[in-house]
Design a protein around this nucleic acid. Sequence first.
DNA 1: CAGTGAGCGAGCTTCCGCTTGACTT
Length: 767
Amino acid sequence: MIENLVIVESPAKAKTIEKFLGKDFRVISSFGHIRDLSKKNLGIDIEKNFTPYYEIPKEKAKVVSELRKAAASAGTIWIASDEDREGEAIAWHLACVLNLDLSKTKRIVFHEITKEAIAQALDNPRQVDMNLVNAQQARRILDRLVGFEISPVLWKKVQPALSAGRVQSVAVRLIVEREREIISFKTESSFRINAVFNTDRLNGKNFLIRAEASKRFPGEKEAKEFLELCDGAEFKIAGISIKPGTRSPAPPFTTSTLQQEAYRKLGFSVAQTMAVAQKLYEAGKITYMRTDSTNLSKLALAQSRKTIISGFGEKYSRTRQFRTRSKGAQEAHEAIRPTYPNIVTIDGNQNEKKLYELIWKRTIASQMSDAEVEKTTISIEMNNSPVIFTASGEVVKFDGFLKVYTESTDLENGDEEKSIIPPVTQGMLLYYDNIAATQKYTTPPPRYTEASLVKKLEELGIGRPSTYAPTISTIQNRGYVMRQDRQGEKRPAKVLTLSRGRITSSSKTEIAGKEKSKLFPQNIGMIVNDFLNENFSEIVDYHFTAEVEEQFDEIAVGNLKWTGMLDNFYKPFHKTVENTLEKKDRRTGTRYLGNHPETGEPVSVRMGRFGPVAQIGDASDGNKPRFASLTKNLLLETITLEEALNLFRLPRTIGEYQGDEMITGIGKFGPYIRHRGKFYSMKKGVDDPYSITAERSIEIINEKNENDKKKIIKDFGDIKVLKGRYGPYLVKGNQNYRLPKGTEADKLTEDDCIKIINKNNKSKKSA
DNA sequence: CAGTGAGCGAGCTTCCGCTTGACTT
């Protein structure tokens, strides 16, 4: 018998809290929600006023039985789930499942994990707030209705196993619409003028000033004319402005900003960031990593202050509390921060160390003084043109928080060069050293990265800290979008240079459209998006979540009945579902591209059973049509007749090697050469299946065979011991097997291998 | 790891938000 049982959501939190409480307390965790709507059917009885059917999912059975056992032998039960809508629902489900009397159940919330805060919580128990619980039920049921009524429409009208939802469908929409902006973007170019001035005509002891003209010139001709003007011009400093300014630190991390910075500074994917943060949290090194709050506890503020003063001095400390600005924030947790701000570095693997350091810097910087800067701008006028040149520079007078941390931006920064401006005076004459007119192209809006998509979703109030990473995974798993690279294309950029009275012309090549790990919409994503836009515009509207959230808030304060709210939503929504099922055609994304230049047969593209496909000819003519799959980066929406016809040139025979044919093609994993039934991948960016020579192909085949030979540690015919990425492993047929820990691979006999394989097969079956 | 594109038709797929393991080519 335990006197007191406290139930929290997270086991790591349970562990810490238990330390603060005496022997009369036991703290256990529910591991999040313990019940959910039944997975079979809809899980909601719509006729009976949206009565939900809750079930304890299989994977929660063990936790629940342990909770029941603990509850049965406890004196007082305190439910300390998080202080937000979901936490309140967890408290209610716990009370239901553990057969607790709601009027007697003690509901408490911790605002920070300190002895005083916990004592204060225990002194102020309240009851479960049913209005808040009902707001959660409305949220949950609405999401189920949207997801489970629209997805089956997609199975019928587009393709099986697809999905739609309040969050994921908007995420896809953002990516598709951005892609279309990029597709329709018209690149233009103009000439930018950059000058290097001398303070002295002679090349003696002087200063250089870099400045840019306020005007850009549309074409080469205009740029050249301006340079000619510059050659005869007198340049004079017309004005100097020195402005003091301050820069302030960014607020401490939330889930979303951590994901963005970890991507920008460390190159982590959203899922990777969360996995590493989870490890740090479990080790007690940082506070909870799924939060929308920028709030820091009093303890954290005090400790940060102490750390800053002892490390950098009093001058660098400025205690601040940041207001959380994001839409729909529920602030059940603190910002993400080091548990002990005085600990600068930690033990752990490289990624853990790097992420911890980032969190430490961000937290500490947020509690430091503003930086003081001095921005100098000088304007340089010409006596024969109204064009003004400006040079600007920034000098940091006091570094403040910059001593430890600067936030990165998403923009590919580059050409804006901030230099130190030399001591000059108004009216001073300057002499050009050189003036260059460089062709600059406009760039389309950037594609989303995983992290910038999270940022956008957060701005729209769509999704929660616990779902950002899973949502990004879902839309990739469904094939709606993919993380891809693009090599980019070369394009010429003209440069005209004026130096010593002469204008020379040259051209440099730059790479445009190079992309690394960006989110690209896939054909099926675009088809589904268009279908949803056309038929369910309300659901994929960017404001839909915000609007229903307002109603959930009304339910939470008791101003709105949750069943009535659902009824208002469901009636017209369900009608739309039925109408769409009844009246709309299947959507295949078919486009007719034109006729074959030789045979005159129609050429079209569409979404086929196995993905996007190009087709020559028509089955109704009695002839058999020819088919070819679209390659990865081709879109049904933009493919041209030429590109479609090109697809039919593969696979092709390019010659013989050792008496057998070599055939090139493009498969699921890119361009390949097939020889004697084996596939050899071509090198990305080097080889091209349309133009590769027989000699080069033989080179690739030999290289791959050599490498495969090196991988073999032991060869028993059917069974082999190979060297893999994670160390040695076994192969039999097309099955891989792990070796037991501590096995010496090079001493294995065939019998040993058979034993390992049999053992592995057995344990797989029993699992 | 890499073909496919006729059709038959049963049975399956799916949401968002809270939490961690268990599992690894």
